[in-house]
């Protein structure tokens, strides 16, 4: 048996589908129609049949009427209401759950979550404040330490200066003592050297006087006055010393 499914939009038929309902695998013959005359045409499958898989999601016919005949059934299927028009049942099933969700959210879900968030934020804020206080304390301690460190450094500097002065004084004193010792020893050495030099000079003078007296005696044939020779030698040696 063939069933003609006529899709209508208002008064006009937009398509006619012939469905072989006896077949185990549903086969549709889609015949586009421009007018309703095709609703009454003989429904014979043709070689141009286009098989269409049965869909689980078939559009719902809002209104349908069937004309039963011995040879088949003509089922006029309305295209349904405007596809963008809201349906009452959908309005009800979307508004209802949202309203329940809103009420639950307003009085139960959100306050509970917000309370937890506020509690954690308060805890974090409190810890943050505590950390700030600890930081301020630490900074005060650091400042105190720094000021103490400055005092200690100043005192250390003073002590170092004092020690340095003491060391300088000690050094100056030691140097002065050493210089004095060196000067004394130098004076002693110079005195000894002068004594030695005077002794040597006396010995040289005596020897020169002796030699001069002998030479004068030999030259003159008589003994020279020892006092005169001695004075002359002495003056000659002094003159030689002053020239050198």
């Amino acid at each position: 048996m063939l069933t003609a499914i006529v899709t209508r939009s208002g008064e006009a038929a937009v398509s006619v589908r012939l469905v072989d309902t006896d077949s185990t695998t549903p086969t549709e013959v889609v015949v586009s129609a421009e007018n309703e005359e095709l609703m009454t045409m003989s429904a014979e499958p043709t070689s141009d049949d286009v098989p269409i898989e049965d869909s689980a999601e078939v559009p719902v016919a809002a209104e349908s009427r069937a004309l039963t005949a011995e040879t088949g059934t003509v089922e006029v299927v309305d295209a349904g209401p405007n596809p963008i028009a809201p349906e009452g049942k959908e309005l009800m099933w979307t508004f209802g759950p949202f309203l329940i969700f809103l009420i639950l959210m307003r009085y139960f879900l959100f306050p509970r979550l917000r309370k937890g968030m506020d509690s954690r934020y308060e805890s974090i804020r409190s810890n943050h404040d505590g950390a700030d206080a600890a930081k301020a304390d630490a900074r005060a301690e650091v400042a105190k330490y720094d000021s103490a460190l400055v005092g200690v450094r100043a005192e250390a500097s003073q002590r170092i200066d004092a020690a340095r002065q003491t060391l300088d004084q000690e050094r100056q004193r030691a140097i002065a003592e050493a210089n004095a010792r060196i000067a004394a020893k130098k004076a002693e050495a110079e005195a000894a050297a002068n004594a030695e030099r005077a002794a040597a000079q006396a010995q040289v003078s005596a020897a020169v006087t002796s030699v001069t007296s002998t030479l004068a005696s030999l030259a003159l044939g008589k003994t020279a006055d020892a006092g005169v020779v001695s004075q002359a030698v002495s003056e000659a040696m002094q003159n030689a010393g002053s020239r050198s």
Partner: peptide, 29 residues
């Protein structure tokens, strides 16, 4: 257009759109 927009009832006056709306509320909750 109706075939991709309008759905047959899963049960009385309750189709896929209704199911999604209910699921949205339930999942959100």
């Amino acid at each position: 257009i109706n075939e991709i927009l309008r759905w047959k009832d899963l049960f009385e006056s309750f189709n896929k759109i209704s199911l999604i709306a209910v699921l949205a509320a339930v999942i959100g909750t």
